[in-house]
Write a protein that binds this DNA or RNA. Structure first.
Lengths: 199, 199
DNA sequence: TAATATCCGGAACACTGCTCCGCTTTGTCA
DNA sequence: TGACAAAGCGGAGCAGTGTTCCGGATATTA
């Protein structure tokens, strides 16, 4: 939002060359397709071939893989972040808002093959992705969590970081094994979060 | 237990050469060290160098990485499996037995860096490891779970596979971030499992 | 149009898993 | 003991991946 606006920004020394802008978009599209087909681990060469560009082009626009993944999913991450306050405002029960937001978050993770895996990957390649997710979504989660605690629906003591990471972890696993549904376990988790002494 | 006994088995055509047995043990020791130092993803070349053998030797004794990991941790997996019935017999409350067994399981996973990650790895390299864990531990978990359900301590409906995999997933992440403790989330999970209508 | 800043492509390097086969060592039998 | 066959060993070599780098192509500007 700060660097993409070519119009009349006096601080911006110059706009990107049009071919560069075009390539950036082409790579983004190709990457999105490749991620669907092969997960966020799709080989760079494969993405480059699909986009019809060289590998160098991808690395110039997106120095790390996390940058590429972030760029591809930015809109959806933003949507998820913005849904938090909206849900809170639209529900009488903060707990219901929290639950629905988590549903959104889980849907996002499980439909992007390998995204949850990447988020918890031990490799440094995805560190920036991890950071971006946390920076953007953890405050939202914290707000919902606090509201639910304040309303007495859930017990205090659980930290937003831990909850988000736990949910993310439960979403790991790209197969469609019917024996494993992350949502059922997350449901259990939320149930365990409820304060038995409150409605 | 079936192939390691060289003594007097009439079905065994011949015992392994002593140098082969020695190498197998050397590799096992080196692998254990490497796993501690670099996780279960430690490069084969590295393990080979540490053991002072060629890569071919490792691949001959342990055709897949899962075989190597399995062999290294076999004793501990067995111990975990055998602890199940013992805990059940030693506790009045099946729920307490289940909880303690899960503690054991979690301790095992979190102390072996990257083991939980490997268990849920998308890669086929670890498929056999996954299978071994499940074959050996899922029946144990099922027994404990059934007993806890029968005693009325927890609600029915949760499958052992789902529970084990969920717990395994929660243990993923090799860092020691104090903000994330799998045990706290697993505690929440167990709390959600309890039948609110029972003691 | 000419000059130059920018960008592109992919060869090249490093690292990994894994296979394959010539050579070495061990066990056996006369 | 000596010789032979079977078993085992080592690591070169192939394939796939991430990442860097720079000569050449292209767009922009004067």
């Amino acid at each position: 939002m700060t660097s993409d606006s070519p119009a009349g920004d006096p601080a911006a020394p110059r706009s990107k060359r049009v071919d560069a802008q075009r390539n950036r978009q082409t790579v983004l599209t190709a990457a999105a397709e490749a991620f669907v087909a092969a997960g966020v681990d799709a080989p760079i060469r494969q993405i480059a071939a699909r986009a019809g560009v060289g590998m160098g082009t991808i690395y110039r626009h997106f120095p790390t893989r996390a940058d590429l993944v972030t760029a591809v999913y930015r809109h959806q991450i933003e949507a998820c972040a913005e849904a938090g306050p909206a849900l809170l405002a639209g529900h009488d029960s903060a707990y219901d808002a929290l639950r629905e937001w988590i549903d959104l978050f889980v849907d996002f993770l499980v439909t992007k093959h390998g995204l949850a895996d990447a988020l918890q990957s031990d490799s440094d390649r995805f560190a920036a992705l991890h950071t971006y997710f946390l920076d953007r979504l953890m405050p939202v989660c914290a707000e919902l969590l606090d509201a639910a605690v304040d309303s007495g629906a859930i017990r205090p003591g659980t930290q937003p970081y831990e909850l988000m990471r736990g949910i993310g972890n439960l979403c790991i696993g790209r197969d469609n094994d019917p024996r494993y549904d992350p949502r059922r376990l997350i449901d259990l988790l939320l149930r365990g979060l409820r304060d038995p002494g409150a409605g």
